[in-house]
Design a binder for these strands. Structure first.
Length: 922
RNA sequence: AGGACUAUAGCUCAGUUGGUUAGAGCGCUACCUUGACAUGGUAGAGGUCCCCAGUUCGAAUCUGGGUAGUCCUACCA
């Protein structure tokens, strides 16, 4: 074995072996455990959020697989309608082509080609993380089977009246030429202006002043509204405005939506281009004048001068023209929220079009109940409130998209505009008796990608067929996801699954935080602060990292800034930490918070932890290989105190890990493992094993017992750790297992260690605690008095009871070795104890004679520090005990505990003071 | 505007039903190449648990009110 752990050597090798051996497939078992992967975008590449999420799912999956559950992790990707279409369109653009040059069929062919060539990137990257989904069952939302499910769902919902087509105001993306749902619109505050215009009354008798952030929309105004109780304008309600530039007259109406306090208290109403105005337009039966075309340029509804102008051009023109007419009152700077498409980044327009909708309100009702009655539980629980808040105020879901890439809507229209929904044109014709003389054309639109994702838990298992997989693995056990897609995906899955399966899609939703950089900033390409998990695994040099982060930047000055920050933050680039260290870092950060700040210091610590494990294994193997470790369980074996102690500690760790995993507290699980392996097994147990193995006097049974414990505890610890660190555990386990009497092709399919409380030997625990106390006391003297570590000391013990004597007897060898003593013994009866540096373990005094030391002042200083600490603590305790109310009202056990503490501290204090005096008199 | 979350060591974070000497990792200081490991060992320093009030014998923990930050939802033209 190498002296240091080299992750790169083993990761690929083991992964290939696992996958090709079929270990990721369900292995049978009575309890089914299944997780459906939140399908990553097929155009995507792995980011830290994926890494975190996959690490958690994989830990759960490996844990349950080892516990003997029939475990399925269903992988796959979604077709990401807009994103994928954009990618391929950009490629065409490079050749000077648009998708229209190719035509629909040819274009879709191109997309499929792209998918075959480049769509597998993210699944390859998932493999690097050690993820163990059943790749043989990988699905894609555009697969034939899933497409069939989508079609079936659409048709059935349509027939049930839960899908309808309607002309509504939608969020229109003028760059992508499609409607998007409100979730795909991001509103950010931006600096804009508030233009105040004077609208002349039709009577010629004065004017009203209205304010707007979008002047061009005035061409589509169909009313001006005031508050019904606003005396300033009450007399004008019912009169008309002569709308400038248009020659139209529009009414002045009263509606309590108007805020009297804001601006002038008069609002121009443009029902076809504003969501609030749309509602008001419906209330007052106002005409809706659509003034835009698909590009958000002005259409023929506006006066000739403005036709064909882009909306922002038109804005300038309208302002200029109103100004020229003397109707521009003033312009104020104004901060407003501007809605932008999350894909295109352009300003979204409310736009009147025909679209398909899902009646979400009806579907939401059972979905709310499923959470209320506990069929679905969120972890952490507070996310249920977020879910309720959204679901109780849900709007109908616009599911049609004006794209080519996606599931085409199975609806046909005849010339009269009648709608026929069905599997295909022939089926529609047959069902409705439509002869060949009737021309049908299919709806051009496709469905929102989330529509197919909403079916994911059951469509991937073969629905609408009633497959054995559906029966076994649905509902799935747990959904692991970020809170950012509770609405997008989680809620919609629950609605769809309940409707079509009459069961929940999953029993638990584990909602994790979002990975941010060390400053708490969201990682984003434009900020240049993204970390690629693969770079953390393999490492990357500074130049390559800078190049990667600044590639394809739109703004060069941003690139310079990013380069500077990157050089500052990673002057050496990023080291190769390996997958196991990366995964363990994720777990250590997986607490209940909403933000996960990824600090590079953490991963380095866990790389060191891997190295620690590696070297502990090296030590164990060096001492066990070729030796009798009681592999067959037939030798005479004597277990030492340390053996019994570490076995008990292992049991407790096993229980703690299981508890943590069941509660989704991966931070606790990782902490417990780290603590056990490093601070107990390596720091103490391995050290305690040395005196036995290297002692010629020790019996063969004792040595065999120690070797057996060394190897078996390590073997179990590896299994315990495997779900979190799959690679190093597999590699080490292969060498360790045979010596522990275990066999198997892989650690992956070994039973998971289950802690049993009974195996904890409390007597051994107490003895080892005593031993540690004595050693720590001696080390403290050594450290604080600057005694060279190499110098052997003589230690004397004083004042102890019978148990101290027997403990010394049992542990003398270990003590000498670990505290570097050439002798340790009790002060004989009647013997005058020499002046000495002192440490206390309970009643027991540990003396290091001053003859061995040089520095009297150092010992006085050390004692003074100890005494001060004790005095402070003692006065605190006494303050408590002198408080009658405390003694009266606190539970007896608590009071008794304080009294015990008081006594112990008093005694210790007395001894230390005595020591202080003796040394001072030297 | 409404709601949620967060505030603990220089940094990143744990801290169960109120009773701990408030912990871990990283970083920091000193010493140490002792036969698994310098990606290491030993010892140590470092905290007004955001602030104020309250409940209680007792509050990092519970209640109320602030302050700061993050996010979500809804938006006033």
């Amino acid at each position: 074995m190498d002296k240091t752990f080299q992750p790169a050597d083993i990761e690929t090798r083991w992964y290939q072996q696992w996958e090709s051996s079929g270990y990721f497939q369900p292995q049978g078992g009575d309890n089914a455990f299944s997780i459906m992967i939140p399908p990553p975008n097929v155009t995507g590449s792995l980011h830290m959020g994926h890494g975190f999420q996959e690490a958690i799912m994989d830990a759960l999956i490996r844990y349950h697989r080892m516990r003997g559950d029939n475990t399925l992790w269903q992988p796959g990707t979604d077709h990401a309608g807009i994103a994928t279409q954009m990618v391929v369109e950009r490629q065409l653009e490079a050749q000077g082509l648009t998708r229209h040059d190719l035509g629909r069929d040819k274009f879709i062919e191109k997309v499929w080609e792209w998918k075959e060539q480049s769509g597998g990137q993210i699944t390859q990257q998932l493999r690097r993380l050690g993820a163990s989904p059943d790749w043989s069952r990988e699905r894609f939302t555009m697969d034939e089977g899933l497409s069939k499910a989508v079609q079936e769902v659409f048709i059935r919902l349509y027939r049930e009246g839960l899908i309808y087509r309607g002309k509504r105001l939608v969020n229109w993306d003028p760059a992508l030429h499609t409607a998007v749902s409100d979730l795909e619109v991001l509103s950010e505050e931006e600096q804009g202006s508030l233009w105040h215009f004077r609208y002349p009354l039709a009577s010629g008798d004065g004017h009203l002043t209205v304010a707007t952030t979008r002047p061009e929309t005035m061409l589509g105004d169909t009313a001006v509204a005031v508050h019904p109780e606003d005396e300033r304008y009450a007399h004008l309600v019912g009169q008309a405005i002569a709308l400038p530039l248009t020659g139209r007259e529009i009414p002045i109406i009263a509606d309590d939506y108007v805020d009297r306090e804001f601006g002038t208290g008069c609002v121009k109403i443009t029902p076809a281009h504003d969501f609030n105005d749309y509602e008001m337009g419906k209330r007052h039966n106002l005409p809706m004048i659509n003034i835009l075309d698909d590009n958000a340029a002005l259409n023929d509804e506006v006066p000739e001068a403005y036709r064909g102008l882009d909306r922002f051009e038109a804005r300038k023109q309208v302002v200029a023209d109103l100004d020229a007419l003397g109707l521009l009152d003033r312009i104020e700077p104004h901060t407003l929220k501007v809605p932008r498409g999350d894909r295109s980044g352009v300003v979204i327009e409310p736009y009147l079009t025909d679209q398909w909708y899902v009646d979400a309100k009806t579907l939401a009702k059972p979905a709310i109940e499923a959470v209320e009655n506990g069929d679905i539980q969120f972890v952490p629980k507070q996310w249920e409130n977020t879910y309720y808040a959204w679901m109780r105020d849900i709007q109908d879901w616009c599911i049609s998209r004006q794209l080519w890439w996606g599931h085409r809507i199975p609806a046909w229209y005849d010339e009269a505009g009648n709608i026929y929904v069905g599997e295909n044109e022939a089926a529609v014709r047959a069902e409705h008796n439509l002869g060949a003389d009737i021309t049908l054309r299919q709806d051009e639109d496709v469905l929102d990608t989330w529509f197919s994702s909403a079916l994911w838990t059951f469509s991937t298992l073969g629905w609408p067929e009633e497959t054995p997989e559906l029966a076994t693995f649905h509902p799935s056990s747990v959904l692991v996801t970020g809170f950012d897609i509770i609405f997008f995906w989680v809620a919609r899955m629950i609605m769809m699954t309940l409707h079509f399966r009459r069961e929940v899609p999953f029993h638990t939703v584990y909602v994790h935080g979002l990975v941010r950089d060390a400053e708490g900033q969201k990682m984003s390409k434009s900020k240049g602060n993204v970390l690629d998990p693969i770079d953390l695994i393999d490492g990357i040099d500074l130049e390559a990292l800078v190049t990667k982060r600044t590639a394809g930047m739109m703004q060069p000055q941003l690139a310079a800034k990013i380069e500077k920050a990157t050089r500052k933050q990673f002057p050496e680039g990023i080291a190769a930490y390996g997958t196991d260290a990366l995964r363990f870092t994720y777990y250590s950060l997986a607490s209940t918070g909403r933000d996960i700040r990824f600090d590079i210091g953490r991963i380095e610590g866990f790389r060191n932890f891997c190295n620690k494990i590696w070297n502990a294994a090296r030590y164990v193997l060096m001492n066990c290989e070729g030796q009798d470790c009681d592999q067959n369980g037939d030798g005479e074996v004597e277990l030492s105190l340390a053996d019994r102690w570490i076995i008990g500690q292992l049991q407790q760790t096993e229980a703690a890990v299981a508890k943590a995993v069941e509660a989704y507290r991966f931070d606790h699980a990782s902490q417990a493992l780290y603590e056990f392996i490093w601070n107990q097994y390596c720091d103490w147990y391995l050290e305690l094993s040395k005196p036995v193995l290297w002692d010629d006097e020790a019996s063969e049974a004792a040595k065999r017992g120690t070797r057996r414990t060394l190897i078996r505890v390590l073997e179990a610890a590896l299994r315990l750790l495997h779900p979190f660190m799959p690679f190093i555990t597999e590699e080490v386990w292969q060498a360790v297992a045979p010596l522990a009497g275990k066999s198997g092709a892989t650690i992956m399919l070994q039973p998971y260690p289950i802690g049993e409380g009974e195996s904890v030997d409390s007597a051994a625990n107490a003895d080892i605690e005593w031993l540690k106390g004595v050693i720590v006391g001696l080390r403290n003297i050594r450290g604080e008095m600057n005694i060279p570590p190499g110098k052997a000391l003589t230690a004397l013990l004083k004042n102890g009871g019978e148990s101290d004597k027997s403990r010394l007897e049992q542990n003398a060898t270990a003590l000498k070795k670990l505290a570097r003593l050439d002798d340790i013994r009790f002060v004989a009866d009647g013997e005058e104890a020499p002046v000495a540096a002192t440490a206390l373990v309970g009643d027991l005094e540990i003396l290091v004679p001053m003859a061995d030391l040089i520095d009297k002042d150092a010992e006085l200083k050390r004692l003074a520090k100890e005494i001060e600490k004790l005095e402070k603590e003692l006065s605190r305790i006494e303050g408590k005990l002198n408080n009658a109310a405390f003694v009266d009202k606190a539970p007896d056990a608590v009071v008794a505990k304080e009294r015990e503490k008081q006594q112990a501290q008093q005694m210790a204090l007395g001894k230390l003071r005595e020591q202080e005096q003796r040394i001072a008199q030297m």
